[in-house]
Write a protein that binds this DNA or RNA. Structure first.
Lengths: 202, 202
DNA sequence: AACATTAATGTACGAAACGTTTACCAACTA
DNA sequence: TAGTTGGTAAACGTTTCGTACATTAATGTT
C-alpha cells in the first residue's frame, strides 16, 4: 500500500506527532519574527506564544535558525509559476517585481535578518540557498536560457553572473538599506543588466 | 593654541588614556575575529587576549559590533588612491579587483559576518555604510561620473544603480557563497554592467 | 486488556555571555 | 595637595541556551 505524505494512516507505533502543535510553533515563530524581529524571537518566546513546551521545539528543530526558516517558508512560500511571454526583459522584470513585492514591509526585513544570521549558522545558510534562492534563480535561469536559444542574449554570457547582477543588487539594497527597494529601481536595474548582454541594440 | 589630534599635550586633567591598551584591544579583537570568527569574539574573550579589564572595553565602546568594526578598520583599512586612466572599464575593474583581493581568505568571511551582524545592530549598520561602503562607492562614482561627462556612459543612467549592480553582485557572492569570488567573475561582471550603460557599442 | 512505543509537558539545571556596579589603585593637571 | 580621569579586579543579576528528569497522553501490537 502506497501512502501519501499527508495520510492520516500513521504506520508507526506510539503517539503520533501533533499537527496542531507543529502549526502553533510555526505560526508563533512567524508572528514573533514579524513583530519583534528575529533577534528577540528566542526559542523560549516561541514556546510561550505557542503554548508549547520548549523541549518540544528542541525535539523537532536543531535550533533557532531552523525554526525561523521553516516559519518563514510556512508563511511566505507561495510557489508562483511565471508565464513565458517570449520577451526576456518583461519576464525577468515580472519575476523581480514579484520578489520585491514580497519584500515589502517586515517580510523583507526578516529575510535580511535571516541572511544575516546565516553568516553564523551554516545550516541556515544552506537551507536558504537551496530552498529560497535557488528556486528563484531557476525560474530566471529558464528565461535567460530561452533568450540565449532565441539569439536575443549573447551566447557567451554567463547566466550565473547575470543573475548575480540582478539579485545581488536587490539583496544588497535589502541588507545595506542605503537606498530604497522599489519598482523604479527594479525596472531600470533589469533594463541595464539585460542591455549589457543582448546581442542587438534596442 | 591649536593642537593636532595626536598631540602628546593632553589639555585635560586626569590620567590620559593608554594608547597601548587601546591598541591591544584592537589587535586582540582583529586576531580573534580572524581566528575564531566574529561569533566567538566575545567582549570577555577580547579582554582576556588583550590582557585588559572587560570594563575598560565597555568604557570606550558601546558593544561588540563597535569594537569589531574598529578592529576590522584598524587592520584592513588601507586608503588606496586609484589612478584615473580615462578608461572607465579599466578603472572600475582595478577598484573591484582590489576589493576582491582584500576579501581573499578570512578577511572576506569576517566582512560577511559584520554585514550579517549589522542586521541586528543599527549602529554597526550605519558605521559600515558610512565608513566602509560609502568611501568605495565614492571612488567608483567619480570614475562613472567622468565617464558620463566624456559621453562614454549614457547620461540618463543612474550611477547608484550601476554601483548596486557591481557591488551588489560581489557582496551577494560573499554572503551566499553559492559561487566563488574571483578575478574572472569580477572581470566579466564589470564588462557586462558597463556594456549595459555605454552610449556606443564595442 | 496489557504492553511497548513515541509525543508532549513542567520543572529544573549548569554553562555562557551579557552589561553593570563597587571599591580600589594609577597617572596626570592645576 | 586636591581634583579628575583611566584602568583593574571581583562580583552580581539577568538572559538564553541546550539538556535532563519524571510524568502524562495517545497511539499501535500482542
Amino acid at each position: 500500500m502506497l501512502v501519501t505524505e499527508n495520510s492520516t494512516v500513521s504506520s508507526r507505533p506510539g503517539r503520533p506527532r501533533s499537527e496542531k502543535t507543529r502549526l502553533a510553533i510555526l505560526e508563533a515563530a512567524a508572528d514573533l519574527m514579524l513583530e519583534k524581529g528575529f533577534y528577540d524571537t528566542t526559542i523560549e518566546a516561541i514556546a510561550n506564544r505557542a503554548g508549547v513546551s520548549k523541549v518540544t521545539i528542541y525535539k523537532w528543530w536543531p535550533g533557532r535558525g531552523a525554526v525561523a526558516i521553516d516559519a518563514y517558508f510556512h508563511r511566505f512560500m507561495q510557489t508562483t509559476v511565471f508565464p513565458d511571454t517570449g520577451d526576456v526583459e518583461l519576464d525577468i522584470r515580472t519575476q523581480v517585481l514579484h520578489l520585491i513585492e514580497t519584500f515589502r514591509g517586515r517580510a523583507g526585513e526578516v529575510m535580511a535578518e535571516l541572511l544575516g544570521y546565516a553568516q553564523f549558522d551554516a545550516n541556515l545558510s544552506e537551507v536558504l540557498r537551496e530552498r529560497w534562492l535557488q528556486p528563484r534563480r531557476a525560474s530566471s535561469t529558464a528565461v535567460l536560457q530561452r533568450g540565449i536559444e532565441r539569439g536575443v542574449i549573447r551566447s557567451g554570457a554567463s547566466v550565473s553572473i547575470i543573475l548575480d547582477e540582478i539579485y545581488g543588487a536587490i539583496y544588497f539594497r535589502l541588507m545595506t538599506r542605503h537606498l530604497p527597494l522599489n519598482g523604479d529601481f527594479a525596472t531600470e536595474l533589469v533594463h541595464n543588466v539585460l542591455s549589457g548582454v543582448q546581442t542587438a541594440s534596442v
